[in-house]
């Protein structure tokens, strides 16, 4: 029985791994194909079944005058906007979440749980509902088509995620740890920064990962709030589309755009699974 169990376990793990890896392998192979290789039926092995070409990749880095889209600028714009908005969201979100977890707020019938829900409700609404208010808001501030405007909007979108994850995290951190720090001689701020925060790194990493993912993949707001001066990667990639879908360069662009997320997930996962940060309390 244990052998059968081990066999089944590995069988399903391998099956799942194939299921996850297959689209990536497909995209990698497609990115090195040309029009004829893509439309001439399914082929898998380079040099044997099709002749690999770098055409799909070179389009991504050529300037527009040479028929390319040059994603380098938008790529760094996306990194800058996502990281800045995520960082600010984590900092503000963590502070808000700590307050919501540890202090009692009451205004009429509104209590802590309601305030937490107000944060999350930002994500419940369909993005299109927010598009016009955001447009008018950025327009009045003169921040349309700017990195600062996008960062502002992304903070609004990402902070609920940070607050939501961190409130839950802090709720599971025993109050005794704060109280012990107070007894040991910290004031409430020192207790938070010296004791609670270092122990909250796992939660912040998870919240950060989610913020980066949601910030990085956003197309909708990047599309409606920017025009020509500033462009983010998802918007730029859509510009590749024409009457004939260029699957090869779209595949290359997909791989380039997903790479940072894989790196971030890989780093965060390593920290979490090491166990030197998770479960640091008690």
């Amino acid at each position: 029985m244990p052998k059968l169990y081990t066999f089944l376990k590995y069988f399903f793990v391998v099956l799942w791994a194939c299921f996850v890896i297959a689209p990536f392998l497909w995209a990698i192979s497609t990115s090195f194909k040309d029009f004829n290789s893509v439309t001439g039926g399914a082929t898998y092995i380079p040099w044997l079944q099709f002749e690999p070409t770098l055409d799909g990749w070179s389009v991504l880095f050529k300037p527009g005058s040479q028929g390319g889209i040059n994603i380098i600028g938008p790529y760094f714009n996306s990194i800058f906007v996502t990281l800045t908005a995520s960082l600010i969201s984590i900092v503000l979100g963590t502070l808000a979440a700590y307050a919501l977890s540890r202090y009692t707020f009451k205004a009429g019938i509104v209590k802590n749980n309601d305030i937490t829900f107000f944060f999350i409700s930002q994500r419940i609404m369909p993005p299109v509902v927010l598009s016009i208010p955001f447009f008018i808001f950025l327009s009045s501030l003169g921040l349309l088509d700017s990195l600062a405007g996008l960062i502002l909007v992304y903070i609004v979108l990402l902070m609920p995620i940070a607050v939501w994850i961190m409130v839950d995290f802090f709720n599971r951190v025993p109050r005794e740890i704060d109280e012990t720090a107070l007894i040991d001689g910290c004031n409430p701020f020192q207790a938070f920064f010296k004791v609670v925060l270092p122990n909250s790194v796992p939660g912040m990493l998870v919240a950060g990962l989610f913020c980066i993912i949601f910030g990085w993949i956003d197309f909708f707001f990047a599309f409606i709030l920017t025009f020509t001066k500033v462009q983010l990667l998802p918007v730029k990639i859509v510009a590749l589309n024409s009457s004939i879908t260029p699957w090869w360069s779209l595949s290359a662009a997909a791989l380039v755009s997903v790479a940072p997320l894989i790196i971030v997930a890989f780093i965060v996962e390593r920290y979490l699974s090491k166990g030197n940060l998770s479960g640091a309390l008690k």
């Binding site: 025993p174 007894i183 122990n199 640091a280 008690k282």
Partner: peptide, 18 residues
């Protein structure tokens, strides 16, 4: 609390894990 200079030990261990 910090000004009272008192020590308190709780029922379950509270340590600074980091």
């Amino acid at each position: 609390t910090e000004e009272r200079n008192i020590a308190q030990v709780f029922q379950f261990p509270v340590i600074y894990g980091t």
